[in-house]
Simulated assay, not measured.
Amino acid sequence: MSKMGSYLKKHTEALVKDVGIEAACKLTGKSKATLGRYYSDHDEHADRFMPVDAVMALEEAASYPHVTGALAELQGIGLTFDGKRRNTKERANVNSDVIVLSQRFALLMAEYQQSIEDGVITINEAKRLLRETSQLQQVLIDMKLHLEEEAI
């Protein structure tokens, strides 16, 4: 399987798990087995990807557009995600964003320090680092939106 295909399948899996497998089945009208095939890395499923309408239905329910973000990254495109995210309080201005940015960066560095202590970053540690990096990215997106609002 190509690196691109593997990357998309990992983000498809993240999307399904973000929504929850049962909810994903209801939203897409697909079975658990079918959804599993969309993110399976087995050779017999290498050319099987989730249809765009199913991605759209799931991303509408998800906390982040995982597959759309992955597609954009693969094409070198930046996205602005301004949807309301769960567990995120509204920040009123750029000053608040700078504080949250500093806090998130400190969390990322703490996670990195803990992960690299033994000289090896395990898959679970990499997932935690990726999660922290994504949270940091969200803060930067919020900051960008607030800067754009102030520039108008």
Rank of each mutant, 00 (worst) to 15 (best):
D18G: 01
V19N: 02
I21T: 11
I21R: 11
E22L: 10
E22T: 15
A23N: 07
A24C: 05
A24H: 02
K26C: 02
T28D: 02
S31I: 05
K32T: 07
A33G: 06
A33N: 06
T34G: 00
T34Q: 12
L35C: 03
R37V: 03
Y39A: 00
D41H: 13
D43H: 04
H45M: 08
F49Q: 07
F49R: 04
P51V: 02
V52P: 00
A54Q: 11
A54T: 10
A54R: 04
V55C: 08
M56A: 13
M56C: 06
A57V: 02
L58N: 00
E60N: 07
E60S: 09
E60C: 06
S63N: 15
S63A: 11
S63D: 15
S63Q: 15
H66T: 02
G69M: 01
G69H: 02
G69E: 07
A70W: 00
A72H: 06
G76A: 04
I77H: 09
G78S: 14
G78M: 08
L79R: 01
L79T: 06
T80H: 09
F81C: 14
F81T: 11
D82N: 13
R85N: 09
R86E: 13
N87G: 05
N87F: 12
T88C: 13
E90D: 15
V94H: 06
S96W: 00
S96I: 00
D97N: 12
V98D: 04
I99E: 10
I99T: 07
V100S: 02
V100P: 00
Q103E: 13
R104T: 08
F105Y: 11
F105N: 02
A106R: 09
L107G: 03
M109I: 10
M109L: 11
A110I: 02
A110Q: 09
Y112G: 04
Y112I: 12
I116K: 07
E117Y: 09
G119A: 04
G119D: 05
I121L: 02
T122S: 15
I123A: 14
N124S: 15
A126S: 09
R128N: 14
L130K: 08
L130A: 11
E132D: 08
T133C: 10
S134R: 14
L136R: 05
Q137Y: 15
